[in-house]
Design a protein around this nucleic acid. Structure first.
Lengths: 205, 205, 205, 205
DNA sequence: TCATAAGCGAGACGGTACGTCTTGTCTTGGG
DNA sequence: CCCAAGACAAGACGTACCGTCTCGCTTATGA
C-alpha cells in the first residue's frame, strides 16, 4: 500500500482524503464498480489524479479504505460497545438467529451492499486484496462468533471438541454464498433454518 | 444489411471457435482475468476482433463458454456416467466425504482454478453473468447432492423435514467460501469435519 | 515520420486527415503553438488521439504537414504557373523588389504568419524538423531566386563569378531575420533598400 | 501576506541563484531545451521550486538570465576592452572578415550553441522573450557594426547615404539564418564571400 | 457454374481511461 | 521571511483497449 518514494504522510490533506472516500463510495453506488474510474473519482472529489495515485495503488485499494472508513464511522455512530457484539441470553440458537437477522438486513442495505459486493468480487480475483478484505473486514466479525461459541461450550450447549472457527462457517458461509453468488434467496426463515441445522445436524437425533 | 442481430450460425467457423476458447483459457491462465483482453484473445487466436464480437457479448461471456466447453470435454474424457455422480454406499457421511475430497483436488487444479475463480469473481459483480454461472455450472453439481440427500432421507439417515437444498449448503458453502475468499485453508480433514458437523450438529447429541 | 508497426496507408481516412489539418491550423492560430495540444487537435477534429499518433510522430510533424498542405492548396488555387514565379522584365532590381513586396505582404498575413512562425521556431531547436522545413518549404522558393539570378548573369546584369545561392541571401536573410527575431520593422522601403545594397554594394561605386 | 509580488531582493540567496544558473545551462546542454523542466532545474540545483518561481517568470526567463550571466562572465574573463570590439585597421573588408571568422568559431562552440539556439527558438515564438533576447544579447553586438560602418563612411569606404543598420544585415543575417535554420553550411570562405558581396554588390562594377 | 452473400482476418476509426509527468500554487518546518 | 521540500489541483502526455466500421479474401451454397 506504500507508494513510489514514500510520500510524507504528515503533510497529507485530510480534506482530500475525505473527498476521495465520499466520491468513491458515491460513484460505486451510482454507476457500479467497473464503471467507477480513478479519473471519475478525482473529478468528483475535486482532486488531482496524482493525489490518488500518491496514496493508493489501485481503484480497489481506494474503495477498500473508503469502505473501511465507512464501517468505522458507522461503528462510532452506533455507540461505543453497543453494536457488533453478539448477545448472550444463555440460549445460543436464539442469539445466533437474532444476529443473523440483523446481518440479513445489512446485506440488503444498498449503502453497504454495492461497495462490499464490489470489494468481495475484486478480492476473489486479486488475492492480495482478498486477504486484506478478509483480515480487516470479515475476521473481526467472525471472531465475535468464535467467542460466543466458546461461551456456549463453557455453558455445555456446544460439544467440547467442536472447533468454533469451523462451526461458525455452518451459518456464515451459506448466507455469504447466497448473497455473493445468487445461489438462493435470503430471508429470516432461511437463516433461522441454518441455525437449527447447524446446532442439531440433519441426521435423526 | 442487418449484420449484428442475426449471424448465420450454420456458417460459423468451428476452427475459429476452438481457437478462441483455447486462447481465452490460455490467456486467463497466463496473465489473469483482468489483463486478458478481447484484442489479446483475437490476436492469440489469429482471429479478427469482429469474429469475437459477432458471437459473444463480452469477455466474461467468451470465458464462460470456453470454461463450459472445457468442463464438458473433461466430462466426456472421464467416461460417460462415471464422474460427477455421487456414490451411494448406503452411508451418507462416507459418500459425502469422498466426493468432497475429489472437490478439494479439483479446486487446487490450476487448469480449473484460475478460470473458475475469474468467472466467479465476475459473477459476484455482474448479476447476469453470476446467474448464468450459477445455473450452468453450479446448479447441476448441487442437484446431485439434492438427490443424494433425498436418498438418505428415504434410507432414514436424514430427517424427513430437512430441506436438501439448504442441507447441502452446510458443506458446500463453507468450502466455497474458504476457496473464494481465502478465509481459511482447505484440506481433507477440514471437509471431513464439515460433514460430521453437518450431519450431527454442534450441540451435544 | 513512419509510425510504430507501419499502418496501412491505403485504409487511411481522408476525412480525418483533413479535419486534423484544419483543427491544427485553427488552434495554432487561436491559442498559439505552445498551447496547442494533441488532445486539443483531436478533440476539435472529432478524432481519436490514436489516429493522430498513428500517422504523425509529434505536434510539430502534424503542423508541418498541415502547413505544407495549406501551401499546396494555396498554390493550386492561385493557378498553375502563375504564382511563385519571379517575373523577368529584364531588370533584376525591379523584379526582385516586386517579389519582395509580395513576400512582405505574405509575412504579415496572419493565416500564414502564426503557423510558419511556430514551425520556424520548432525547426530552430529541433534539427530534424528544421531540415524538413527548409527542404520542403524554403528551398523551393529559394530555387526560384537562383534561377532568376542565373538569368541575370546571362543578361550581363550580375557578375559571372557570383554564387547565386549566396547572392539571394543578401535580401532573403535580412528580411527573414527581421521577421523571425523582431530585429527590425519590415516595409516596402526596407526591401527596396536591401535590393539596392545587394546589387551595388555599400562601397562607393 | 503578499508573497509573489514583491520578494525582498536584498535577502536573496546568491548561492541559489548561481546553482540555478549552472543547473539550467547544464540541463539544456545535456537533454536539450524542451526536456529541460523547472522541476529538473530545481532538483539539480538543490533548490525548492518556489525559489525559481519567486525570481523568474518562466523557463525561458531563467535560461535567458543564465545565458546573459554566462556571457558577462566570458567577457570579464577575456579582459576589459579587448573582446567584442571590431578592429579598425583602416580596411573595412579585412576587419569584417576577421570578426566574422571569430563569430563562426563561436557559433560552433557547443558551450554557447545549445543555449543560444534554444533561446533564439523560444524568442521566435514568444515575442516578449524575443525582444529581450534581441535587446540584451544581439543589439550590443550589432551596435559595434554600426560604429565600424560609420567610421568607414567617415573614411570614404562606404557611401554616405548608406544606412549602417541595414548594411550590417547584409553579412549578419545570412550567417544567422544559415546557423538558425540549417539553410546552408557555415565556413570562413562563406563569410569572406558575404563581405565581398556586401561591399561591392553582385552587379558588374 | 458461377454470382453472391455470408463469415472471416485484418486493422483503422472515435472514444475512454490509464498511469506518468510537469506546471504553478500552497503549506510546513528549519534557520 | 527566505529557503528546501514536497503535497496539491490541473491537465497533457503517449499507450492500451473498447466496440464499431470498413476492406478484400475465402468459401459454400442456390439460381
Amino acid at each position: 500500500m506504500a507508494t513510489q518514494p514514500t510520500p510524507d504522510a504528515s503533510r497529507r490533506s485530510e480534506k482530500s482524503r475525505r473527498a476521495i472516500y465520499d466520491a468513491a463510495l458515491a460513484l460505486v453506488g451510482e454507476v457500479g464498480y467497473p464503471r467507477t474510474t480513478i479519473e471519475g473519482i478525482a473529478a468528483r472529489a475535486g482532486v488531482g489524479k496524482q493525489t490518488i495515485y500518491r496514496w493508493w495503488s489501485s481503484k480497489a485499494d481506494v474503495l477498500l479504505e473508503a469502505f473501511l472508513d465507512l464501517s468505522e464511522q458507522a461503528s462510532r455512530d452506533a455507540g461505543p460497545e453497543y453494536e457488533f457484539a453478539i448477545p448472550d441470553t444463555g440460549d445460543l440458537a436464539t442469539d445466533l438467529k437474532a444476529v443473523l437477522r440483523l446481518t440479513v438486513d445489512q446485506l440488503k442495505d444498498p449503502r453497504f451492499e454495492i461497495p462490499s459486493r464490489a470489494l468481495a468480487a475484486e478480492g476473489v480475483v486479486n488475492e492480495q486484496l482478498g486477504r486484506v478484505f478478509m483480515t480487516k473486514l470479515l475476521e473481526p466479525s467472525l471472531l465475535l462468533y468464535v467467542d460466543r461459541v466458546r461461551a456456549a461450550q463453557a455453558a455445555g450447549q456446544v460439544r467440547q471438541e467442536v472447533d468454533p472457527r469451523i462451526a461458525l462457517e455452518l451459518w456464515v458461509s451459506p448466507l455469504a454464498q447466497r448473497w455473493l453468488q445468487y445461489t438462493g434467496p435470503i430471508s429470516y426463515e432461511y437463516t433461522d433454518t441454518l441455525v437449527d441445522y447447524a446446532l442439531h445436524g440433519i441426521a435423526p437425533r
